[in-house]
């Protein structure tokens, strides 16, 4: 068996690898779903109930302004949350897997 094939087999048999993949996959798809929901929810409101975004909330400010800015902010916040989890948890797990291979 080649070194590469045995390495693949070793990683595949490592429970930490499965833990890493399961956790990261769940987080990535949850956040993807959240972003799609937020964005297409916003598009749906524009398409079906645009007048709702035109409600005045404070002087000349309409509800649509904070909501639009919130969608922009949500893109950054979701991305930041992913980086936070990846930098702490996922990188640690990856390092442990790599060290286990030596």
């Amino acid at each position: 068996m080649s070194a590469k094939a045995s390495l693949i087999q070793a990683i595949e048999g490592d429970p930490k690898f499965h833990k890493l993949v399961a956790k990261r996959t769940r987080l990535a798809w949850t956040l993807t779903g959240a972003m799609l929901l937020i964005y297409f929810g916003f598009i749906a409101v524009i398409a079906f109930a645009p007048e709702w975004l035109g409600i005045f909330i404070s002087g000349a400010m309409t509800l649509g302004i904070p909501i639009g800015l919130a969608v922009i902010a949500s893109a950054f916040v979701l991305t930041g949350f992913y980086v936070y989890r990846a930098n702490s948890e996922f990188d640690r797990l990856t390092r442990e897997i790599l060290e286990g291979m030596k």
């Binding site: 972003m35 975004l53 309409t62 649509g64 969608v71 893109a75 980086v83």
Partner: peptide, 24 residues
């Protein structure tokens, strides 16, 4: 007015998807 914001939002929201599914 407000319509410009709709375009901006559309151009931005692809980036989190790139992060979650593709970049690494």
């Amino acid at each position: 007015g407000y319509d410009g914001l709709i375009y901006s939002v559309g151009w931005l929201v692809g980036w989190p998807i790139i992060m979650f599914l593709i970049a690494e």
